[in-house]
């Protein structure tokens, strides 16, 4: 598994700008405006990726957007992508039906540190749709459960109706070897779980040290990092997945620059010390 992960990190394509047709096997509505699309390569060849990587998804004639891979890295040949409809391209991708074709380039970018995390406690902290890019890491950790210490999954979202992968979170919560804490920003009275930002879950989590993987809106990640540091996590053990506008995914188009970093090839997963200063500059 590890060698596969490392291998797929070094993926290189003959023509990295040529999109590859994939057939839609399933379109699953997750929550309002967010769908998970299951895809298979039209050419029948496999597709390998490492947790945390993304692809450039192409809707015929409409355009291309970077989308995180949300599926299981061990399921070779199947690609799952979770898309939130926020504009023309993502809306078109959310509407695809079985047997439709979409284009895929990638996978691109740096992975979550699931390999260096072996032997450590791991805390995964997600906000909103930020759970999607972390799901491949969760699959990987659970598949290799014995190789890791304690695992806590902390998830915050807007309201109970917006909980992504709800049934999966519930089934993970039922496991004895995994802690799952979920909070929402506001709820009605029928909600019995925590209400408050995801940062308030951190002091309650079973994992108190080790590696933290964080994905969500940038402001959520800033406050989460601060809380983690206050709790005693080492800065270089905190990893964030950044989001930027990308047109190419391979460092040619310049759009995703964040200071000296190209989020597409130096990220999207960064160790916190590598982007700490950049996160403090507005409009960088």
């Amino acid at each position: 598994m590890e060698s596969q992960l490392l291998e797929s990190e070094q993926t290189s394509l003959a023509d990295p700008m040529a999109t590859r047709p994939f057939r839609v096997a399933k379109n699953q509505r997750e929550i309002d405006g967010t769908h998970t699309i299951e895809l298979r390569p039209a050419d029948g060849d496999g597709f390998r990726f490492a947790p945390g990587q993304f692809t450039m998804m192409y809707a015929f004639g409409i355009g291309e957007v970077p989308i995180s891979i949300s599926g299981d890295p061990a399921r070779a040949g199947t690609l799952e992508q979770t898309i939130r409809s926020v504009g023309a391209v993502s809306a078109a991708l959310c509407k695809v039906r079985r047997d439709d074709t979409v284009g895929i380039r990638g996978p691109f970018g740096t992975p979550w540190p699931v390999v260096p995390a072996v032997g450590n406690d791991v805390m995964l902290i997600a906000g909103g749709i930020g759970l999607a890019p972390l799901r491949p890491a969760i699959y990987h950790l659970l598949r290799n459960r014995a190789r890791y210490g304690k695992i806590s999954i902390l998830y915050g979202t807007r309201q109970p109706a917006d909980i992504l992968f709800r049934s999966e979170l519930e089934s993970w919560r039922g496991r004895f070897d995994l802690e799952v804490l979920v909070t929402v920003d506001s709820a009605g009275r029928d909600w019995r779980a925590p209400v408050g930002p995801v940062t308030t879950l951190i002091p309650r989590a079973a994992v108190r040290e080790g590696i933290a993987m964080v994905c969500g809106p940038e402001i959520m990640m800033r406050f989460t990092v601060q809380t983690l540091l206050d709790r005693g996590f080492d800065a270089d053990q905190i990893f964030l997945s950044m989001e930027r506008n990308m047109k190419c995914g391979i460092g040619f188009c310049g759009h995703c620059q964040m200071g000296p970093a190209f989020v597409c090839k130096d990220g999207p997963v960064f160790a916190y010390p590598d982007i700490e200063k950049l996160m403090r500059v507005r409009g960088i």
Partner: peptide, 19 residues
Amino acid sequence: LEAMRLQILDMYGKPTVGV
């Protein structure tokens, strides 16, 4: 107060523009 600030930001809310 800090927690409440994060909550009222509606940071997971649906953006008004995007691609």
